[in-house]
Write a protein that binds this DNA or RNA. Structure first.
Lengths: 338, 338
DNA sequence: TTGAAAGCGCTAACAG
DNA sequence: CTGTTAGCGCTTTCAA
């Protein structure tokens, strides 16, 4: 027998019970894998389920159990405009993958900045069991006071306010430090940086990683210019740097887009990559691979980040012990620009 | 009063009714915007709703009304591996945006190719009111026989089988034709093509667009090589083309990645873009913008595609008349490579 | 225009 | 280990 919406022949738990000659409670137990069912009984019930093609009704189950088995992936509207940003897509992908192996379903919620209460009401209205909150690089944890299991992407901007929040993040400091150290190790001595905005954790942390590395080797730590993560700002930042110093033999940008933007300024100055100036980015997104020469960059495992977040959240919902913070390692991808 | 999960103080419709001094039925009518309520009554009820911060319980509503207000976005697992592909992300984004203005919620479903029945059961188990099906370039409509409102991305591979299916797509033929005609109009006379796989609609249609254009101008239609949409295959295809003819003064690739791959072969041959050889891609993704010189390409409105699909689906679900096919126009983006 | 009453399909005590 | 019995919170006839 097949389920047919039009004719309304959707088998119910009650029909399964009748067919198997047991009570609804028993069928429910079998469906939910309760240990308190005799194996033979379970077999009979399972046969009936298979014959009827029974599928539990989510709404009924949710209403009775007070669990929704839905997890929200909350994306602020402004960042969703750059949802094509591989970073978000990857997180969504990682989360969706992990959740598909659980009983949870991933629901995408675009949170309009104009009406954050809409999202708050949705989250608190018993629609979801928990939420994954992704806000692009901003460290904005404006949802953090809802009493709902939540896991954030990235550390909070102000660590002191985040005493009680759960998040997964990438080790930006270590990533940028090791990239810088790689440059030092390959003989570069005048290493500039095009930093990101200093009001978001990745901007701060990546700059800090560079600074730690140059300082610990006694190199110049003054070669800093700031950009806003766009390619154009990378070009402009690089122009300023080259104007300030002729000796620059390497530059690190806080993301790939700015690094690729820097290519333009380097070419304008008649310099060659990597012979005259080595370039390293951060993110390992499309830009780095499509660049000519391909960009050496710090890979951040964004799919794993999504997986980690989903794992933590499911643990939280199930009441299992969960570490408050999960820091994922980065990896330097050597390509042609360094 | 605030909703509080822990203390269980989630206001119910019944509480609103008590507070407003009316029956639950009336509250329900107000919540659902029924016209059969006296305005003054509605006002009183709305006040009570606001005071209590009442939010309807989805599960209960769904159980009683037999509607879920959930729409599935189904992504085959294999294509979700390239979910970072801007094409999918954009469709998801467009759909999510549109749906956020409706009562529907978008649920991401990754469909494991190893167990398609899992997805079928999910879709037919009363979990969703409809589905958006995205399968990368494949024209695979294996879900097309489910009796559930569905809208596909892209035309079916075999048009005759798709008699009764709804889909939105981009006009690949016209897009590639106009790109080719642009090249002809700017004086190019030996226009080669790096075509995509011929077992998926975009591969077929884009090649056809090129062919229509060159034929209608009496130009050589033999300069065809095939790739698999990867940059490497673009490089290889271009090498073969250049080996076959020294006169090639333009090449069109079926996507941006192959076009950027072609850059490499063109450089190897000591030729310059666009002076010696003009290059045009298709998609307008990151590759085209990051390329040096920036790639002229055919933009496909993939966000709009997602919006269109969602719109069609909601129409279907509501029982409104909906056109079976929606074809979105492409746009030639002139950049530095042509 | 409003209210009363009967479920929607399932879970979860509580008995047995 | 299995069945009985209440609901979960809302919509929806049907009367009034």
């Amino acid at each position: 027998m097949t389920i047919d919406r039009r004719t309304g022949i959707v088998p119910t738990l009650e029909m399964v019970a009748a067919r198997a000659g047991v009570s609804r409670a028993t069928v429910s137990r079998v469906v939910n894998g309760s240990p308190r069912v005799a194996p033979e009984m379970a077999e009979i019930v399972n046969a009936a389920i298979a014959e009827l093609g029974y599928v539990p009704n989510r709404a009924a189950r949710s209403l009775a159990s007070r669990r929704t088995e839905v997890i929200a992936l909350v994306i602020p509207e402004s960042t969703s405009k750059v949802f094509t940003d591989p970073f978000f897509s990857s997180i969504a992908q990682g989360a969706a993958y992990y959740l598909s192996s659980t009983e949870y379903t991933l629901s995408m919620v675009i949170s309009p900045e104009s009406d954050p209460d809409r999202t708050r009401r949705y989250l608190m209205g018993g629609n979801v069991d928990g939420a994954l909150i992704v806000s692009h690089h901003s460290g904005d944890h404006s949802y953090q006071n809802l009493s709902l299991p939540m896991v954030f992407a990235g550390r909070p901007l102000h660590p002191e306010t985040g005493d009680n929040i759960f998040y997964a993040c990438v080790d930006d400091v270590a990533g940028e430090r090791s990239a810088t150290e790689y440059l030092i190790g390959s003989g570069r001595r005048s290493i500039a940086v095009i930093a990101g905005p200093q009001d978001m954790p990745p901007g701060l942390d990546r700059l800090r990683g560079w600074r730690e590395a140059v300082l610990s080797h006694g190199l110049d730590e003054s070669l800093v210019e700031y950009g806003d993560f766009t390619p154009l700002s990378g070009t402009q930042g690089m122009r300023r740097l080259l104007r300030r110093s002729k000796k620059i033999d390497a530059v690190i940008a806080a993301n790939d887009q700015m690094a690729v933007g820097a290519y333009v300024a380097i070419a304008e100055a008649g310099l060659r990559i990597p012979d005259d100036v080595a370039v390293i980015g951060f993110d390992d997104d499309y830009y780095s691979r499509a660049a000519q020469p391909p960009l050496t960059t710090v890979n951040q495992p964004s799919i794993d980040l999504g997986t980690a977040m989903a794992e933590m959240l499911v643990g939280l919902i199930r009441g299992e012990p969960v570490e408050r913070v999960r820091v994922l390692p980065t990896q330097l991808k050597l390509r042609g620009s360094s």
